[in-house]
Design a protein around this nucleic acid. Structure first.
Length: 198
DNA sequence: GCGTCGATGGCA
DNA sequence: GCCATCGACGCG
């Protein structure tokens, strides 16, 4: 069966619902020279102005303008002076919700380390230039290739200890036991394993 | 294998 | 002054 590009209605769901659905979907970036494809393995949901971990909690500013726009657009911003993070605007128009794409697995024999939101954007050449781009277009988009959805693990989000009670909200989703989840060591497999764990 | 820390720049 | 990160470094 042919892959289906996600459309506006797919994105117009609450961020936590969308974040779950996006694990297992394909992220595609077409440039003039290349096409990058990867399977999303880890996401986080940011629930809007009430969510103290979300930029939306700062209200409508120059930076959050896209975030408070329509679903299905890219919200890309600079963090720590050196990393661009790729988010997808979710929910209904102006709700300020988004899903952060944290890790993916490269496809088509492409060798890259996409385990982490900063590394993913760098390897896929997604930058702030793409802030506000329409993800139902031809440059960056998501595909459902009808692969069965993976079993999900759920944990609190990463790097948001400042967010008061929101820091413990279970809004990070990843494919259980998948090797391409952020924070994991690379495939430098077998160290000393004298006795296999039972 | 772990904890700690510096880089780096846009934003309010 | 912060920060939705990452990799280098020191430890023992």
């Amino acid at each position: 069966m042919r892959s289906r590009k996600l459309r506006r209605a797919d994105y117009a769901q609450p961020a936590d619902v969308l974040a779950r659905e996006l694990v297992g979907k394909l992220l595609v970036h077409r440039t003039a020279k290349q096409k990058y494809r990867a399977r999303i393995v880890e996401t986080e949901a940011y629930l809007g102005p009430v969510d103290l971990a979300s930029h939306a909690s700062k209200g409508l500013t120059g930076r959050t303008k896209i975030l408070f726009g329509s679903p299905g657009f890219a919200y890309v911003y600079l963090i720590y002076g050196m990393y661009d993070l790729f988010n997808i605007v979710a929910g209904h128009k102006e709700s300020g919700q988004a899903v952060l794409i944290r890790a993916a697995e490269p496809l088509d024999g492409w060798k890259a380390d996409l385990r982490g939101p900063g590394k993913l954007t760098r390897a896929m050449h997604i930058t702030r230039q793409h802030n506000g781009i329409d993800l139902t277009g031809q440059t960056i988009f998501l595909l459902d290739d009808h692969t069965p959805p993976p079993a999900l693990s759920v944990t609190p989000r990463i790097g948001i200890d400042y967010a008061k009670h929101w820091k413990d909200a279970p809004l990070r989703f990843f494919a259980a036991d998948h090797p391409a989840v952020s924070g994991k060591k690379s495939a430098s497999r077998p160290k000393s394993r004298p006795n296999p764990p039972r």
